[in-house]
């Protein structure tokens, strides 16, 4: 870990201003991802802006009938919220399928969206990694890639985004709200929030360096049945090989997003039209243009089968 300076921000805009004022600054929320990465010198911020005291830890009803989730709401609290459990079950289930109880007690809504990949080569600073060190190459290509992306990746990077929460939020059409140093706010649909790697895998979201997440807004509840089926090598406390977030309506229509397969929550509204035709039809649309490696081509089959399991459960 490199030495860094530290401050506590007094307001969201101040936090953003502090980020603008310090080259190489980062916000720290729960710290469950950032601190690990700092210890390994994968992240080397020169300045930390602690945003834990900003009060953004409430969940409030919006005028539109949805919920505004403060960026500092802990994963545990979000998963346990009555309204979330009743109206957005997919989100609650996704959250409790992630990490461990202790981690979820610390992890925040904003931090979860911005957690970084679990690509094992990203974690080993002896290995080349375009995400960690732009231009150095990608050791995962041709290496051990069982966990990595089958679609959406590029020559430069095939890492996945590891969040479970984000997959559910994508299905719910969540919107990320931000503020910058000037006090300008914007609302970014989650669909547009994470970027595919292309030639710049180190740039993971559309956020500007001084842009601070204040909240995530959920639109009105969708009704229907909510599922989050996360498949992994052990029963708990592991990242997804494949996960399926789904909201399914009584008429068989619905929404689906996949985790564990791509650099961002993987959803394609057009593929959802194929739902009445079954899992295979949906998956073949979702994975059009997929470029799996030998290690991870099973994920395509697994995604199809997991979706089939969800659809079967929905049929009851």
């Amino acid at each position: 870990m490199r030495a860094f300076s530290y401050e506590r921000a007094g307001s969201p805009q101040e936090a953003a201003a502090a980020a603008a004022a310090h080259e190489g600054a980062q916000f720290i929320a729960g710290g469950t991802n950032l601190l690990d990465l700092m210890k390994l010198e994968i992240e080397t911020p020169s300045h930390l802006i602690d945003v834990n005291g900003l009060g953004l830890d409430t969940i409030e009803a919006t005028a539109e009938g949805g919920l505004r989730i403060g960026a500092l709401v802990r994963n545990t609290d979000l998963a346990a919220d009555q309204r979330v459990r009743r109206d957005y079950g997919v989100l609650s289930r996704a959250l409790v399928a992630g990490a461990s109880g202790q981690l979820r007690n610390k992890a925040t809504t904003g931090g979860n969206l911005l957690q970084r990949t679990r690509c094992p080569y990203f974690y080993d600073t002896n290995m080349s990694c375009n995400k960690r060190e732009p231009g150095s190459g990608c050791a995962a290509q041709g290496g051990y890639s069982r966990q990595l992306a089958v679609i959406g990746g590029s020559e430069a990077c095939i890492a996945t985004h590891p969040s479970d929460m984000a997959i559910a939020m994508r299905v719910l059409d969540a919107v990320v709200e931000t503020v910058n140093a000037e006090g300008d706010t914007r609302a970014i649909p989650l669909a547009d929030f994470h970027l595919l790697p292309g030639d710049t895998p180190h740039i993971e979201t559309v956020l500007a360096p001084d842009e601070f997440i204040t909240a995530v807004v959920l639109p009105r509840p969708l009704g229907g049945q909510h599922f989050y089926h996360k498949v992994r090598d052990r029963a708990s406390y592991a990242f997804a090989l494949v996960s399926v977030a789904a909201v399914i309506q009584p008429d068989g229509s619905g929404r689906i997003a996949l985790g564990g397969v791509a650099p961002k929550p993987w959803r394609n509204e057009a593929a959802e039209a194929a739902m009445p035709n079954g899992a295979r039809a949906v998956i073949s649309r979702l994975f059009e243009g997929a470029t799996p490696t030998e290690d991870n081509e099973f994920k395509v089959t697994l995604a199809e089968r997991t979706l089939a399991a969800v659809l079967a459960e929905a049929r009851g």
């Binding site: 094992p120 080993d124 290496g143 052990r234 029963a235 708990s236 406390y237 592991a238």
Partner: peptide, 14 residues
């Protein structure tokens, strides 16, 4: 490659 306890999975209680 998977040289930590996140990458090298051992059984959990579940």
């Amino acid at each position: 490659v998977n040289h930590d306890l996140a990458g090298y999975e051992v059984p959990v209680h579940a």
